[in-house]
Design a protein around this nucleic acid. Structure first.
Lengths: 395, 395
DNA sequence: GAGATTTTTGCAAGCGAGTGCAATTTTGAA
DNA sequence: TTCAAAATTGCACTCGCTTGCAAAAATCTC
C-alpha cells in the first residue's frame, strides 16, 4: 500500500543543495594553504533536475518533460517559459532516467574482436558517426573469439539495456541470440554469416570475391596457386575459400598449396614461410590468395624482404578487404573490396528499423557485392583492364 | 536549439506489460504459416526484475539488492536463496536503474577525432580492454576538431552521466572543462596538453622526441633539414616542432624548409610535393621530420614512388608515434615511439583514481618518455647503434 | 542463560523523468 | 456570444534499483 506523497509546494527539495547552488566555493579566505586542488574538491556537484526547471518556469514537471519530448503537446507560451528556465539553469535531461522508464537506452552495443586489422577501425568510425547522426551512441566491448568470453561480454552489454547490438567479426552462441531476441534486442552480425532466428547478417559476397580471384589467377596463367586461410571457424574464411576453390575448379585447376594464417600477423608470417621458404621455383606457388589484407601485407613482406622474391614478378599476391594500406604504393595490393561505408550504412538502416518499427522490419541477411580491385601485386591477364591510375582520390 | 529525439513508438511501452510478464509466448500453435520472423515478433519481451526474484526467493527486494551489491551485508542462507532464484529466472540487475540512484554510470566517455591515424585504434583497443577489466565501459563519440562540434558532443556525453571522460587528440573549451568539473566528472586529455583546472593531461615528451630527431639528423651530417608540421593548433604539433627547432639550434642549424601537413594524408601529400617536387638536389631537403607516422608514410610514398628518390639514400625520413605499420619492412620507418600501452595504463589509473577517490587524486600532468626508434628510413650517424634487428617480437 | 552486541532484514522513501487520465484552457463553429 | 471539440496542463503513478533507519535475529560475553 502506497501513501500519496503530498508535495509541499514550497518544498525544500533535497537537503541543502538548492540553496548553495552556484555560490559555494570556499568564500575566498586567501588562505595560504588552500591550493587549487582543495578548492576544486570543495565545489558542490551541481545537478539540475526537471523539478527545478519546472519551479523556475512556473509550470509542472510534466510540462518540462513534454517540452523535451519531440511529439508531445506543449503550447508556445509554456515552451518558451521552459526554454528560458532550462537555459538559465543549464538543464539537460538525464538520459539514464529517461531510459529507465522507456525501457531502452539509445545505446548500441558493439562487440569487436580486434582493431589490428584495419578494416575494423574504419567500420567503427563509420558506424559510430552514422549512429551519432541518428541520436544513438556506441558502447564498445572488446572480445576475442573465445566463445565463453563473447557470451560473458554480451551479457554485460545487455545489462546496459542497449537498444541494439552489433557484433563485428564475432559470432554468437545460439543461446545468446535467443536471449537477445527474448529481450527484444535486435542483433546484427557484421561480417559474419550465421543461421539463427532473428539475427541479421551483413556480409559481402565472400564466395564471389574468392571466385573472382581464382578467375584472375587462372586467366593470368598461374599454375601453382596457393591459399593462406583465415581463422577456420570464421564464415568469411569458409566462404572465401569455397568460392576460390570453386573458381579454380571451373578453370580445371586445384589448389597447389594451403597454409593457415588464422587472420593473425604472426601466423600469417609462419604460413608464408611454410609455403615459400627454401623451395625451388617449381616447388613454390606462383600466386597466392590471402584471406584478408591484414595477412596479405605480412605475406608480401616475407616474400619481398625475407625471401627476395618479386611481387608480382615471381609471385602474385591478392588479399581481401581493401583496407586503406592496400592502396599505399608500397604495397599496391590487388584485393577484393569490402565497402565499409556501405556495409555500415546497411547495418545501421536495418538495426534502426528493427528498433523503431520491429513489426515491419525484415531480418533477411544482407549481402553486398565484393568487386575485385586490380592493383599491382598480381599479374594482370592480357585483355583485362589494367589498374586504372586510381581516381584522383586522396590516399 | 537541439532537442533529443525519442523513438517514435511510444505507444506500447507502459500499457499491458506487467500482467503478461513472463507467461506469454504464443503457446506453440505449430501453425504452418507461422514463420520464424512472425514468431519472434510476437514474443513478449521478458524482463525480470528484482521484485520477482525477491518473491521467488521469499525475501525482500532489499535482500536481493544487497546480494548484488559487493560490500553489503547478507547472510549465507539468504544469499543462497537469492542466487538460486536469480539463476532460475535469469535475472541480471539493470545497470541504468542502479546508475540513476548512485548518480553515476560505469561508463567512460571517449571523444576521438579520427581513426585513420593508426595510433588511435591501438589506444581505443587498449583503453577499452583496460577499463573493461575494471568494470567500466567506453562510450565512443567521434568528433572532428571543429570546436563547436566538440563542445556539443561533450554535452551529449555528459547527458549519459558518464563517470569520466577521455578525449583523445581533441581539446576542450575551458567552459566545458569547467562544466565537467562542476559535474564532478574527471577529464583526461589524452595526447593533448592544455592548461586548465582539474583536467589531467597525458602526453609523451613531445619536445624531447623532436629534439632527439634533430640530434639524429645533425649527427648524421644532414644540412638541409625540413619539417612537415601537423595541425597547427595541436599541442603535439607545437611541442614536437619546438623541440626539433631547439635541437637544430643546439647544433647550430636552422630549418631549411617547412610545410604543413595538418595531420592529414591529403595535406601531407601536398606538403611533400611542395618541399620536393621539381627541385634540384641542392634545392630540396636531405632530411625531413614529419610530425606523425600517418603523414610520414604518405611523404615516403611521394618521395619514392612519385619522385623516384631513395630513402634514406637521398632523403632521410623520420616520423612520430611508432604505429604498427612503421615497423613493416616496406616502410621501416625511423620514428619516435609513443607507447600506447603505457599511456593508456596511466590514463586509466588516473581516471579511476579521480572517480573512486577524488579526495586524494592528483591532477598533475603525466608525461611519458618518447624514445627514438632507429630503423632504416633515416641515415644513421657513425657510432650510433644501428637498428637492432627488432627483437623477435611479432610484426 | 540474560543482557549487550553485532548482523541481517524489511520497510519505505527516493533517484530523474515519462505518460494515462481527467481537468482545464483554448480554439472553432454556428 | 455560446457550446462543442481540440489542445494543453497537472496529478500521480511508474520504471528498477539503492539505502537510511529501525526492528528482528543471530552472536557474543561473563
Amino acid at each position: 500500500m502506497r501513501r500519496p506523497i503530498t508535495p509541499s509546494a514550497h518544498g525544500t527539495i533535497g537537503t541543502p543543495a538548492p540553496m548553495m547552488r552556484g555560490l559555494s566555493r570556499t568564500c575566498g579566505r586567501g588562505g595560504v594553504t588552500l591550493d587549487d586542488t582543495q578548492e576544486a574538491r570543495s565545489m558542490t556537484i551541481e545537478k539540475v533536475t526537471m523539478a527545478e526547471v519546472a519551479a523556475k518556469a512556473g509550470v509542472s514537471r510534466s510540462a518540462v518533460s513534454r517540452y523535451f519530448t519531440p511529439g508531445a503537446s506543449v503550447s508556445k507560451k509554456t515552451a518558451e517559459k521552459v526554454r528560458l528556465a532550462a537555459e538559465a539553469l543549464g538543464f539537460r535531461p538525464n538520459i539514464l532516467a529517461r531510459s529507465l522508464i522507456t525501457g531502452q537506452s539509445r545505446i548500441i552495443g558493439l562487440v569487436i574482436a580486434y582493431l589490428e586489422n584495419y578494416f575494423y577501425p574504419e567500420v567503427l568510425e563509420k558506424l559510430s558517426k552514422a549512429l551519432q547522426e541518428r541520436g544513438y551512441h556506441v558502447l564498445v566491448f572488446m572480445s576475442s573469439q573465445g566463445s565463453e568470453t563473447v557470451d560473458d561480454v554480451i551479457q554485460e552489454i545487455l545489462d546496459y539495456q542497449v537498444a541494439g547490438l552489433v557484433t563485428a567479426s564475432v559470432s554468437l552462441s545460439s543461446e545468446l541470440s535467443t536471449r537477445c531476441a527474448a529481450l527484444g534486442v535486435p542483433v546484427v552480425l557484421f561480417n559474419r554469416a550465421q543461421d539463427g532466428k532473428g539475427v541479421t547478417c551483413v556480409t559481402s559476397d565472400n564466395a564471389d570475391g574468392g571466385r573472382q580471384v581464382a578467375r584472375l589467377f587462372t586467366a593470368a596463367g598461374h599454375r601453382r596457386i596457393a591459399y593462406v586461410a583465415g581463422w577456420e571457424q570464421a564464415s568469411t574464411q569458409r566462404d572465401r575459400e569455397a568460392g576460390f576453390l570453386q573458381g579454380l575448379a571451373e578453370a580445371g585447376q586445384t589448389l597447389f598449396a594451403r597454409a593457415v594464417g588464422n587472420y593473425e600477423a604472426a601466423a600469417a608470417k609462419a604460413a608464408a614461410r611454410q609455403l615459400f621458404a627454401g623451395k625451388s621455383e617449381a616447388e613454390r606457388p606462383d600466386a597466392v590468395f590471402v584471406a584478408n589484407d591484414h595477412m596479405a601485407f605480412v605475406v608480401m613482406d616475407v616474400l619481398r624482404f625475407e625471401l627476395g622474391l618479386k611481387v608480382p614478378g615471381d609471385v602474385s599476391v591478392v588479399g581481401f578487404d581493401d583496407v586503406p594500406p592496400a592502396a599505399w604504393p608500397a604495397y599496391d595490393l590487388t584485393t577484393v573490396r569490402q565497402d565499409a561505408e556501405t556495409m555500415v550504412a546497411r547495418t545501421v538502416e536495418r538495426l534502426l528499423a528493427q528498433i523503431e518499427t520491429p513489426a515491419e522490419a525484415s531480418s533477411e541477411p544482407i549481402r553486398m557485392p565484393a568487386p575485385l580491385v586490380l592493383r599491382g601485386s598480381a599479374r594482370i591477364p592480357e585483355g583485362w583492364s589494367p589498374p586504372e591510375p586510381e581516381p584522383p582520390q586522396e590516399i
